[in-house]
Write a protein that binds this DNA or RNA. Structure first.
Lengths: 345, 345
DNA sequence: ATAAACATCGAAAACGTTTTCGAATATACC
DNA sequence: GGTATATTCGAAAACGTTTTCGATGTTTAT
């Protein structure tokens, strides 16, 4: 019933706790014979070191904290999977918390992780987060912090991102290449950096091609949740305001799918009447009809990379040689599908 | 830099560590005055109890382990969300591990959680799991274990499930009600209980309606991953073997969507030629074309319920009054959409 | 006045591990 | 035989908290 301790093994073998501990860790100053005895008995008794004691002694828990805005989300669950699988390889466990896109909750979750004394923190910011003192709190405690996807440029820590601006530029350029003349954009909320960058990429592509930039063609997802409903809502608005739009670059696949559903309802054909490019390459997008042209965003890889960076920093801090912050940009790719016409020669 | 400890507070106030500890926990045997002083200083110093020490002393970590077969999955990520949100309310953290549908990995993950000394474990079994000794290991250690969705009937622990058989029965009955005469079934792998139960529900509905049960109409997802590809594969086989099938009850939405895609490719119309009912009500199913008739499986609620049950059992074990195991069955609902014809009068 | 009750505090043990440092024994060398 | 060097072990401190139990001082009741 009671878990086996070093003491139990020591008593049965009539040696000291010290020796048992050292034997199990292959210290050079214990004989082969006693090592053998100890290891054998440890195995038969099914000894498992008490993590609580180890944590206290070593001042680390081999556990990291992860805060994401949402869990039920193709992109984020891929990131989570990437983080967990990489962490496991290095012997780390992951505690996951959700901010629900709320700054208040995010702050609370960070505090929770801090008081739990995790060895490091991975975070993707809530859309509403504009104050960053809770993040500085992490750094002040000397804990490594790595941000991914939804980042804050101001904070001095490593970041794993994609080049949203470039990806958006490519998406918009694709619409231009296939012959679109009037291109709208459904953008995300005002605050998140990637929502801003995607907008800027869209705008730059227009200007580089001598297209006029028309602010009335930019629709903001006002609810801020990048939902199916927002796509439908904006599609309705667009249909009312502008009947000459023949291409849309949309912030997120889900919003794009909402828009396509609404267009279908109104008899507007995709891609014949309107070409659509989404963003993220949710699995869903390859399965709907028409399949959605989109930007592939490497969630799994982002998760892996984020943990790897955090791991390096945790190791560095342990060795009292903190690493400089690093910004890693992951490649994206334009996935051409049925929602945009094929390229013209 | 160094975190503040009880000792720091005690020294600054010239009182004992004991008194500081008691003051912070509102013990009755410390005066209001000292309580005030201690609490104030604790706040200004930003004192946070050292979780490692507390865990060691209290022999509990307020942390539970969660093992799921997959993370990137609409149903499971909903469950995860439910578990995390409920756990947070009770002050528990959740460590998530993934078995990747592999028995070996599942066993390893359970061992990991056990050696981490989590206070309890929630698990949904991998499809390949047929040996259950690792689960009995949990119970033998006196740790509460609650299984959900993919369960093993043999293990004596609480379980949160849906009535798969009844749900499958209703799905099949729906196909019969709308006039289908020859109904096929794409089932999941052979081992998982819910795959078995759904098959049995399908069969019972047929027999209750005096339909012949024809084993050649039951297609097994052989890869065992319930994927889009498996849906396409089975649809191809069905098209080759049976040209008279006018309804299919399919184990999982994703497989159903794969099948629909394949049918569309071959010019077979849904629901005109073949009616399809899926299972799980993934968000995706409400967005594809045609929208998919399916069984709604309450993932979020299942997660919440699973944690609640685990919490009760953890509390009970702490009070040395272990609770009897309990099986909780959650309600499902048939969601009628476009992939099945409307009911005949 | 004495005894009983109450209020307030602190010493110390315990949780189980890791690691430093010194002690003891055995082996090597001259 | 004596000194130096390996080899093998263990005592003890430390990590920071919780909680038992006794000590001290103060108030109330008799």
């Amino acid at each position: 019933m009671k878990p086996v301790t070093l003491k139990d093994i020591a008593e049965q073998l009539n040696i000291s706790i010290t020796t048992v501990s050292k034997a199990l860790k292959d210290y050079p100053d214990v004989s082969k014979k006693t090592k053998g005895l100890v290891k054998e008995l440890a195995k038969t008794l099914n000894y498992k070191p008490n993590t609580f004691a180890v944590n206290l002694r070593m001042k680390e828990s081999k556990t990291i904290g992860l805060v994401v805005p949402v869990i039920v989300h193709h992109f984020f669950s891929n990131i989570i999977k990437g983080i967990i699988s990489q962490a496991e390889k290095k012997g780390y466990l992951v505690i996951i918390l959700q901010s629900n896109e709320s700054y208040e909750l995010e702050k609370k979750q960070v505090d929770l992780l801090l008081s739990q004394r995790v060895d490091g923190i991975l975070i993707s910011l809530a859309n509403g987060t504009a104050d960053f003192s809770h993040l500085n709190g992490i750094i002040q405690q000397g804990k490594p912090l790595v941000m991914f996807d939804k980042i804050a440029k101001i904070i001095k820590c490593s970041k794993i991102i994609i080049d949203d601006r470039k990806a958006a530029y490519n998406a918009t350029q694709h619409l231009i290449d296939i012959g679109c003349k009037r291109i709208a954009h459904f953008r995300g909320a005002l605050l998140p950096q990637n929502s801003i960058d995607r907008f800027l990429g869209y705008k730059k592509a227009l200007l580089d091609n001598n297209f006029p930039y028309d602010p009335s063609l930019v629709y903001i997802c006002e609810l801020g949740d990048n939902s199916f409903e927002e796509g439908k809502e904006n599609a309705r608005k667009l249909l009312k305001d502008h009947n000459d739009v023949d291409g849309i670059f949309i912030n997120t696949d889900l919003v794009a799918i909402g828009a396509m559903t609404e267009f279908k309802k109104h008899g507007v054909k995709v891609p014949e009447d309107i070409n659509i490019v989404g963003f993220s390459n949710w699995f869903m997008s390859s399965v709907i009809s028409p399949t959605l042209t989109t930007i592939d965003q490497p969630g799994y890889k982002m998760g892996k990379t984020a943990f790897k960076q955090l791991y390096k920093e945790m190791k560095a801090i342990k060795n009292k040689k903190p690493l400089p912050s690093k910004i890693i940009t992951l490649e994206t790719a334009l996935i051409k599908r049925e929602s945009t016409k094929s390229e013209m020669e």
